[in-house]
Design a protein around this nucleic acid. Structure first.
Lengths: 119, 119
DNA sequence: CAGTATCCCATAGGATACTG
DNA sequence: CAGTATCCTATGGGATACTG
């Protein structure tokens, strides 16, 4: 009988949160929740409905996001973080802090090299 | 003239640290550094030399890891975190904490459903 | 509005073999 | 030991069109 393999928690996190859109989605929901499908689509630049559905379903399966349907016309669906989903907040904050820190680092590098970054 | 696009810092972090092996490598180096190529290869389960080289080069390019060559026989190469690389530590800690938390969550789920996870 | 259903492709990632 | 060099494939991700 096989118990749960205790593998590296870091890898575990990466498996759950890896993928181009999962963290952006969670980030959007950490900031404010619930949100509707279209709201998320608008807020997350570059995402397509296909991908949004995709990643939302995956997050739902992993128990991080919950989906609530309202029988209105036109249909309304609200996405929010579950309790488990909310637990990512401290990590999200660190991720954001580091990203910001690194962006500033890049800026200071750029000043000295006179190079520009096109995004 | 184009300034640096301020995009979501979270996405920025994901771009730098995404990929299957980057965080595991950084994690290994956060715990103890410097480490040799072979040490990393042994420590990071499942990684191949190709991938290890690959990801190390990428981390080097991004200024997170430094590579030091010793002209010994046989050759010795040591990898360590740069100062920038060390700045990921708080994030790494949160990532690990969350991964652990989620693994425990899964375990408790599993007890009630009698399902097992094969890894 | 909130999605599916298809189809398609680049590339991240991996297997294998070889080298300074 | 510390890698390259090749080659290959799976799949993450995207474009487009359509539906309850």
């Amino acid at each position: 009988m096989k118990k749960i393999e205790i593998k590296c928690p870091v890898e575990h996190s990466v498996e759950l949160l890896g993928g181009k859109w999962k963290l952006p989605i969670l980030h959007a929901l950490v900031n404010a929740s619930p949100k509707r499908f279209k709201e998320l689509e608008r807020e997350i630049k570059g995402i397509t409905p296909t991908m949004l559905t995709n990643q939302l379903r995956s997050l739902e399966t992993d128990g991080l996001v919950s989906r609530k349907i309202f029988a209105t016309v036109p249909p309304t669906v609200e996405y929010s973080l579950t309790e488990l989903g909310k637990s990512i907040k401290p990590m999200m904050v660190e991720l954001q802090k580091w990203g910001l820190f690194h962006q500033h680092y890049l800026q200071s590098q750029m000043k000295s090299t006179k190079k520009e970054k096109t995004v």
